[in-house]
Amino acid sequence: MLQYLSKRLLQMIPLLLGITIITFAVIRLAPGEPTDLQTQLNPKVTVEAWERLRAYYGLDKPLYRQYLDWLWRLLRLDFGRSFSQDNRKVIDKIAERLPITIGLNVLSMLLIISIAIPIGVLSATHQYSFFDKFTTVFVFIGFAIPTFWLALLLMILFGVNLGWLPISGLKSLDYESLSFLGMMTDRAKHLILPVFVAAFGGLAGFSRYTRSNMLEVIRQDYIMTAKAKGLSENRVVYKHALRNALLPVITILGLSVPSLIGGSVIFETIFAIPGMGQLFFHSVMSRDYPVIMGILVLGAVLTLLGNLLADICYGVVDPRIRLEGRKG
């Protein structure tokens, strides 16, 4: 396992390097310069001031130098300072928001797993039943629905019309004055809509994936053997089939990290949640280069870590992978 892990970590290095190259290229090759915001909007800027600013940000150096300098700073976790009014360190700005985004995504992943897997299993074991057909329709709609629209509709229904749930932020204005129990319910109420919306797209994909895996596994010889032994239907389905059907689902969970984090931009903006997605959107709107670059790199690294975590889990539950790793 240790050998397998170190091999996987080594494989990540060229990918990490590639991520920084693409991030740098996208930002530097895009039209405009980081200093534009400070210079173009200000007619009083002289040529000397402009050149001074360029030198300050290292823009007068050749591109490869700029890249290497930036990479060297990244290695020391120095993401630079934000261009915005507060001029804070990028790493601090991201650090205070990242837990919120990760927390929300973990919650929605848990929701996806706990709903999608039972749905997938039931529609596989009852193929072509009413339930199966109903979920097929649900899956198609789930794939086609714009997340932000779903969010709007739920906000109108539960926030505006019924008034049951708050539609923005993570806590109420009077949060500090609430009792501990009050604080918990306040938090929970604020989380229901965002977590559900974030999970919805994944729900469709996962239930479909579980269903097709399950259908494939049920046809395998060892399931036949288990049935022939005289095991009960439930035991065969939940003990023998489900375990094998769920293995590839772990990989898919890892692969869904980029779409979950990407989706955070949308739902955090809609629900006014102060997470990394919202920070990214605001930085894009104000052309805050250092923050944009920092979040691009970090988002991609999170994806890599998600895949790594999925691979490790896979290795833990599937002995075949583990043994292969030991051999080579």
Partner: peptide, 17 residues
Amino acid sequence: IMLCFPTYFLILAVIAF
């Protein structure tokens, strides 16, 4: 490498400029 970037991230970064 391109697939490592979360959905919308690269698009948003370019649209900014």
